[in-house]
Design a binder for these strands. Sequence first.
DNA 1: CGCAGAATTGAGCGGCGTTCAATTATTTTA
DNA 2: TAAAATAATTGAACGCCGCTCAATTCTGCG
Lengths: 194, 194
Amino acid sequence: MGRRSDHSRAELSEIIVEAGYRHMDEVGFAHFSAREVAKRVGYTIGTIYNVFGSYDALILAINGRTLALWRDHLERRLQQAQGDRLQQAIEAYFEFAARHGHAWAAIYDFRLPEDVSPPDTYQAKVRAIFDLVVAEVRAALPAARQPEAEPLTRSLLATVHGHCVFAMNGTFAMLGENDPARAVLDRVREAVGQ
Amino acid sequence: MGRRSDHSRAELSEIIVEAGYRHMDEVGFAHFSAREVAKRVGYTIGTIYNVFGSYDALILAINGRTLALWRDHLERRLQQAQGDRLQQAIEAYFEFAARHGHAWAAIYDFRLPEDVSPPDTYQAKVRAIFDLVVAEVRAALPAARQPEAEPLTRSLLATVHGHCVFAMNGTFAMLGENDPARAVLDRVREAVGQ
DNA sequence: CGCAGAATTGAGCGGCGTTCAATTATTTTA
DNA sequence: TAAAATAATTGAACGCCGCTCAATTCTGCG
């Protein structure tokens, strides 16, 4: 067949990513299937490969969408913020992971071959989240410590991420921790100096 | 066939886990194959399932072995420790993850169905690592703060883990961080108070 | 020796990612 | 408008996967 609908190639790509994201969020990375995505958008497996070129590229596109939604969620929560903005940011981080557990986990479950790095469009989405958080850390830091803002934000993101991982995968439950967001807020406050 | 070698059932199980661990460490969770493990130990796929009952149980046994090796690595490094023991612990954490990247990642890549929790033998291995670290945190904490030792250790483990994840999966590379162990040591020192 | 029980096999099932020659639709050209 | 060129889509085929289980083979005991 030839062109079948009024979707441009770019539109079709978006439709597939949208359906793929939903499928991922429902079943998780381990049970994700490109064939199932094809079925959901009314195409066949061959078309998926024509559009994305590889399975990895499809996953990357889906995870990129998840990152974008995550960034939007953070931004929205920070706009509504009253009180401690860093606390809001932490809670928004946890909230997204809890609400979209499978899609969120897929970001980390999927790994590119060791010798290839993600495309710039993907890296930009990671940095977009970083940039949002850097602004908050910077605002919380006294003038004398402004130069630390970026390295400190990298470290604090990793700190929050670690707590979020342990909260989501049951490690904290095993060890008797039942208020991970509170624990990480303590760490963050120590680091920025109250 | 019937019993074919002089392995008891328990010995066979250990042999399979050992081969499975090596296979996992070589190819990683995404390319791990129970059939391949069977081939390596000179049995067939059916025997794997007779011994472990399920794929999940096999993975759990292999990840359990990785946890035990990890604990041993930490313990050995702490025995040799000169100078800052918390720093040694952090470096040992990173070192194991770097040396056994695939096996280490498999601990987190694999997830049981949401409604089941890991067997006690597995949880005990997680706690064994926790116990090792608790002792170090306790030693670094003044008398007045001893009651915090356990919750603080949970939080610091998560902190170190988050940095380790970002170091291993390329997130830190994307964000320009090139000394993750140093960064997390700063966080840990802030938390225990120098 | 014969037999009960334990251990092992491997073909078969449905599903996966991946490829690509064949087919069908659209667009361009004459 | 008809034919030729291009673009999009298909789906069977391949080799692999986890998983099952009737059939087979080995072992030890009476």
